[in-house]
Design a protein around this nucleic acid. Structure first.
Length: 802
DNA sequence: ATAGGGTTAG
């Protein structure tokens, strides 16, 4: 039964708030580690009464004075010595000790002392409970909280305003907002603190609507709001992005002359930042007289949130220069997204180093922010090692880790992490799915896409607009355009992203006319297009060869919609012009464009020159690309293929060596097909499957039937004498053809065969697919990283340009 | 001797 009370005589920490104890109560832990004295909670009270009553009374007054001063200075070791010497200390003395312990983070000790008080039969009063309840909050102990709540009821203190306020706060902080509501509703008298506690409780539980309602009810009850209500309600406005309500509160702030309150200033700056009005934040910030770390953090965060990373950084620099203030963890957390935005890995790393030097770790939020930054800067290994180092992880850090994998193109890794997360008994949330769906989009087959969709519905996330938009894209990329359309149809309030996504979805599948029609539907619905709308639209025109439409949309961007074309739009146009056959026009277009052409832009021209077999231009363009990106594997491969087609084997070899020197390897081509209900992955000349012999037999039969056509364009191409040892000398057993055969074997007649590829389909396979579609009278759909070829009756929707 | 607050990751 005996519980030990352990203290050291530490001085009271200067600016420690309850919040500092929240993440794992680190500070309390540190203090308690330095134990000097252990005092038994149940130790008998000294009964050595003084014979002289007058002297005794004086002595007891002196004891009381000393105890109070020890508690005030945080010397609990001494305070407890005095306490144990006292003859029957009064309830007041017990309260003072419990308060002191709670205020200094010794929550367990405060609660133990309360239990000892009960055990010794010392009556507690209305002052005892607020302190001990606060200790339960500090300890995150719902069990103690409920036990003490029942004592409150038994002793009849459940009508006391202060005790009830404490209980309201306790339950809301321990995540039982319904309990808070119940106590609040039963209170006969409510003061501003009661209302404020309820409002901030709602905000903390993410129920902004209730907090706004409560704020309104408070004013209806003629309790005037104070700085605490204002600060809480501004937090609610920030979370919800309620700019109008936020402005209204700002007016009240001015009317009540609260506008020079430093915390309110900070909250207002934050609110405007989160509601997207960073210029308001800036105006308020300029007027702040005394700039605290918090106010700097708020303005740094506001710029970061509003996509102004450079300004965010310059605020940080000014903070360091002007006020001689020490950045804290929150400063870094607010600044790191800006590092990510600018891909400023060096700055990000220096933040990391700074945090280490300042002893900020472990800190789950900061660590997650670093993980996220590394992920967005494309450093998956750094992101992952950050995660591995973390002592504490949560759903958010797992989500950030998944995002890092997806970001760096490691989709399979992302799916593994997702599985690991689920086996740690963490329940995926909306963000998890928003992060993981793009991974499915890249590598899943329609059936797998349907499965994850079913899971999402089962977990109740099926109506989230973010998830629906991600689902449209995922289904389309997996090859299931009908499923994409179905999701789109079910969205009640379609946003601009829903429209952009469905437009691109049809483009990917070669239905450019539908994309164009959807765009006019979108206009008719009064949805304002943005830059991405035109990326979808132009990409669709490009895929489907709608040159004139594309040019019209491009020129209408600025004139009709006042949108400046970005580099992606120019990229689509180069593709489009290249496709139209006018390579010179495409080149001229690049020379004339107002933006600096990227490797991707030149890549479009390279594709065009390949299609039109213009090797001189291709060499020129490849030079440009390689001067921008030395490791552009696609560029080497394309050029090498062009040389091979011209039988310039020496050049082929030269490029092969160059790639080898740089450690570049061609991506291993592989195709995915659903085979007897399972996903089957096939590489070129792949014999590793149990089903291989059957698939090869089928392909041989088909090849023999269509033999001549296939032979002419195929076998000879990669068969120079000096490359004869290479396995891929023939395109005959390319993964695409093997996969198509597997599909034909395992699906009923009349249904389309769907194959996904990780690289673009080669000309020979494209030809073969056309012929196979005609011969077998089946629709064959082959998706590459950019779009889906639809073969039927010997034709492909790409009209042989890809 | 009594309770309430701001800046924090996807």
């Amino acid at each position: 039964m005996a519980t030990a009370l352990c203290f050291s005589c530490s001085s009271k920490p200067s600016t420690v708030t309850d919040k500092d104890f929240l993440p794992g109560r680190r500070k309390a832990g540190k203090i308690i580690e330095n134990l000097d004295v252990r005092i038994n909670v149940r130790s008998p009270i000294s009964t050595g009464d003084s014979p002289n009553m007058t002297r005794g009374m004086k002595w007891s007054l002196e004891q009381r004075r000393r105890l109070l001063s020890f508690v005030d200075s945080g010397c609990f070791e001494n305070a407890l010595h005095v306490f144990e010497e006292m003859t029957r200390p009064s309830t007041f003395i017990w309260n003072v000790l419990i308060r002191g312990l709670t205020d200094n983070g010794f929550y367990q000790e405060a609660i133990d002392l309360y239990y000892r008080m009960e055990w010794e039969g010392v009556g507690s009063d209305k002052y005892t409970f607020p302190f001990v309840i606060k200790a339960c909050v500090g300890l995150f102990s719902l069990v103690d909280g409920q036990r003490i709540h029942s004592r409150v009821i038994k002793m009849g203190f459940d009508k006391d305003l202060y005790v009830c306020n404490s209980l309201v706060i306790m339950y809301s902080k321990l995540g039982c907002i319904e309990q808070s509501e119940k106590i609040f509703a039963d209170m006969l008298v409510k003061d501003a603190v009661s209302w404020n506690s309820m409002i901030s409780g709602y905000v903390a539980s993410g129920d902004c609507l209730s907090s706004l309602t409560c704020f309104r009810d408070m004013q209806a009850a003629r309790i005037s709001c104070d700085r605490f209500s204002v600060i809480s309600i501004l937090g609610a406005c920030s979370l919800y992005g309620c700019l109008l309500k936020g402005k209204e509160v700002h007016c009240q702030v001015i009317r009540r002359q609260l506008d020079s309150d430093p915390m309110i200033e900070t909250s207002l700056i934050d609110m405007y930042g989160k509601c997207g009005l960073v210029q308001y934040s800036d105006r308020l910030f300029k007027r702040v007289a005394q700039r605290s770390v918090a106010v700097w953090n708020a303005i740094i965060g506001a710029y970061g949130l509003n996509d102004e990373p450079v300004r965010s950084f310059s605020c940080f620099e000014r903070m360091l220069e002007s006020d001689n203030l020490d950045p804290n963890a929150v400063t870094l957390i607010n600044l790191l997204p800006s590092c990510a935005r600018m891909r400023a890995l060096v700055q990000g790393k220096s933040m990391h180093g700074f945090a280490i030097r300042k002893g900020m770790f472990p800190h789950v939020v900061l660590e997650t922010a670093l993980l996220d930054m590394y992920g967005k800067c494309g450093c998956l290994n750094l992101a992952d090692s950050m995660f591995v180092q973390m002592k504490e992880t949560n759903l958010i850090s797992w989500n950030a880790r998944i995002a890092a994998y997806v970001q760096s193109g490691n989709e399979k890794g992302a799916l593994h992490v997702f599985q690991d997360m689920c086996s740690e008994h963490l329940h995926p949330d909306e963000i998890t799915f928003v992060n993981i769906l793009p991974a499915y989009a890249e590598i899943a087959l329609p059936k797998e896409g349907q499965q994850i969709h079913a899971n999402i519905i089962k977990l109740g996330f099926g109506s989230s607009i973010f998830i629906c938009n991600a689902l449209i894209y995922m289904h389309a990329k997996c090859g299931d355009i009908q499923a994409a359309q179905l999701v789109f149809n079910c969205i009640v309030y379609k946003d601009v992203i829903s429209w952009n996504t469905i437009i691109l979805a049809y483009g990917i599948h070669g239905f450019g006319e539908i994309s164009v029609r959807l765009f006019s539907d979108m206009m008719a619905e009064g949805i304002k297009p943005n830059g991405s709308t035109f990326v979808s639209l132009l990409a669709s025109c490009r895929i489907c060869g709608m040159v004139d439409e594309g040019q019209n949309y491009f020129s209408s961007m600025k004139t009709e919609y006042n949108i400046d074309p970005g580099i992606e739009h120019y990229g689509c146009m180069v593709d489009l012009l290249g496709r139209s056959g006018n390579i010179d026009l495409a080149k001229h277009f690049i020379d004339e464009m107002p933006l600096v052409p990227t490797a991707r832009i030149w890549g479009s021209l390279l594709s065009a020159s390949r299609y039109h077999r213009n090797i001189e231009l291709a060499e020129l363009v490849a030079d440009r690309i390689l001067s921008l990106e030395h490791d552009n594997t696609g560029c080497y491969v394309l050029l090498s293929n062009m040389y091979a087609e011209l039988r310039r084997w020496a050049d082929v070899e030269r490029i092969r060596c160059s790639m080898q020197r740089q450690g570049l390897r061609r991506t291993t081509a592989c195709s995915l097909i659903e085979y007897n209900g399972k996903a089957l992955q096939i590489t070129n000349n792949d014999c590793s499957h149990a089903e291989a012999s059957m698939i090869y037999d089928a392909l041989d039969i088909i090849s023999r039937k269509i033999g001549d056509d296939l032979h002419v364009c195929g076998v000879l191409k990669f068969k120079p004498p000096d490359l004869i040892r290479r396995r891929a000398h023939s395109t005959m057993y390319h993964s695409a053809r093997l996969a198509i055969c597997a599909g034909l074997l395992s699906t009923p007649v009349g249904t389309p065969v769907l194959v996904r590829k990780n690289v673009r389909i080669c000309e020979d396979c494209h030809n073969a697919a056309k012929i196979i579609s005609e011969m077998t009278d089946r629709e064959i759909v082959v998706g590459d990283p950019k779009f889906y070829h639809r073969f039927s009756n010997g034709k492909c929707t790409c009209k042989d340009y890809w």
